[in-house]
Design a protein around this nucleic acid. Sequence first.
DNA 1: GGTCTTTACTTGACAGCGTCAAGATACCGG
DNA 2: CCGGTATCTTGACGCTGTCAAGTAAAGACC
Lengths: 206, 206
Amino acid sequence: MTKELPHHHGNLREALIHAGLQLLAEGGPSALTLRRAAARAGVSHAAPAHHFDGLTGLLTAIAARAYQAFSSQMIRHREAAEPTDVARLVGVCQGYLAFAKEDSGLFHLLFVSSDVAREDAALMQASGLAYQVLRDACLPFSPLGQPDPEIEIAVWSMVHGYALLGLNLPDSPKRMIVQIPEFEVLLKRIIANPVETPLALDRDIS
Amino acid sequence: MTKELPHHHGNLREALIHAGLQLLAEGGPSALTLRRAAARAGVSHAAPAHHFDGLTGLLTAIAARAYQAFSSQMIRHREAAEPTDVARLVGVCQGYLAFAKEDSGLFHLLFVSSDVAREDAALMQASGLAYQVLRDACLPFSPLGQPDPEIEIAVWSMVHGYALLGLNLPDSPKRMIVQIPEFEVLLKRIIANPVETPLALDRDIS
DNA sequence: GGTCTTTACTTGACAGCGTCAAGATACCGG
DNA sequence: CCGGTATCTTGACGCTGTCAAGTAAAGACC
């Protein structure tokens, strides 16, 4: 039987997260407010306070949920790729970019919004899992056979910057004379390059 | 003689931009509101409407101003660098990162805030000039001797992503087991790599 | 020099926002 | 059955951006 919402809504916390995701998908970051989420969940404007620590709490919970979708998107693209190391890493990055483009509201929440409590435990765990997908995809390109932060951060920075520049400057193709290269081409510059470059910097590799 | 502010403030537009920059530097993005900027400029809360198209207009004008400081920061670091092509590009990127770190409020406005009218003519001109600094620094690494969007976008994406990840995840050094490599090391991966890589996607590197 | 128009600013109001305090309601363990 | 507690409602507060109407000053024109 369908749940007749009791006046004790029953599962408000989940309903609010769901409503928030919906609002975010429909109208972007500015469309998600506490009061609107409450209204959509069918409760009064002050009800969310009993389940989340203010707006920040709701946004944080939604972000943790969004990280799962983010990870899934990367994994889905990886699984759909050819079974080579390069294709898998390219796939993960394409998942990254696809999520940024298709779920830009969530992507904004994950990496941009200043109203998210980034020290939240659940959020950090979820983001760690997402980062792990990228790490795993980078592993085959580590010269030492173990995780190499240099490649990981290089790839992560580049895909992240590529996503945000394309996201925040949607007219950049017009503004720039040149055509924007595909990400795969840029990625090759990182992974194809052996680490032997004689870097003149006095850095200790300990 | 000191200007006795006439009831016709005289130069309110400039005063509002100045007040906005001040608020942004003091309390971050959330501290900058139309009413506060108006109060600090010594006018009533509705006065800004005659000089800017709402809050978006003020933020856009401030962003255009901030792009000049951003360009200056990159140029300053470039001039302070050794007179080699590599050092100059590294310098420009360090200027990029220094601006993101030291003037994070402005950086947020330039690349993150959704309340900026990015199609604004003055803003696009200012951002174009900033991008040109990066382009120029990349030019020596173009194999054909003319601007190469592949290198430009690769460098821009990576420095941008590096800045934003470090900016939005201030605790990432703790969260990650590994230490974050210096940006210069990552940069070398892009510029040291000749473009000759056969970019057949279905190639495994093994 | 005295109007008259135009620009610059003020005042007041409105809806929407997050948040707090107090009261009502439904569940739940004894 | 009953009291306690978690849950939700109602109402209010100060803040935000924005609009409408009124006022004051500056400049133009004769």
